[in-house]
């Protein structure tokens, strides 16, 4: 196993997340794409840990921090989407143009 196989996989996952982020209209699906990008970042962190093997497994520690913050982000994000849906009867991001100039 060499590092580049996992690095390419992570880059592909991140690019797919970017595509979903740009293309999707539904806000829940935008959040799903963000999850893909966060998973790609986690793969990179774990790969670097497997390369250098620090005594405290720092790469894995940081990937768990990323996981935790991502879980908090999903909770808050879905609460905001719920609020928007309740006020505007739509969860499409391109219809939220209230502050558009």
């Amino acid at each position: 196993m060499i590092a580049s196989q996992f690095l390419v996989l992570a880059a592909a996952l991140f690019a797919l997340g970017v595509y979903g982020l740009l293309v999707r209209r539904n806000a829940v699906l935008v959040l799903l794409s963000v999850e893909l990008m966060l998973a790609a970042v986690n793969i990179n962190l774990v790969v670097f840990e497997a390369m250098w093997r620090t005594s405290e497994a720092i790469g894995q520690v940081f990937s768990i921090f990323v996981l935790t913050v991502a879980a908090a982000e999903v909770g808050i994000g879905l609460a905001i989407i719920l609020m928007i849906f309740r006020n505007r009867q739509s969860a499409n991001v391109d219809e939220l143009d209230l502050m558009r100039w």
């Binding site: 590092a3 580049s4 690095l7 390419v8 992570a10 880059a11």
Partner: peptide, 18 residues
């Protein structure tokens, strides 16, 4: 994004043995 990311990471760390 995919091209830049994979080029940058693979040329820098690609041959490292896990």
């Amino acid at each position: 994004v995919f091209a830049v990311l994979s080029y940058a990471t693979v040329t820098t760390f690609g041959n490292a043995e896990l």
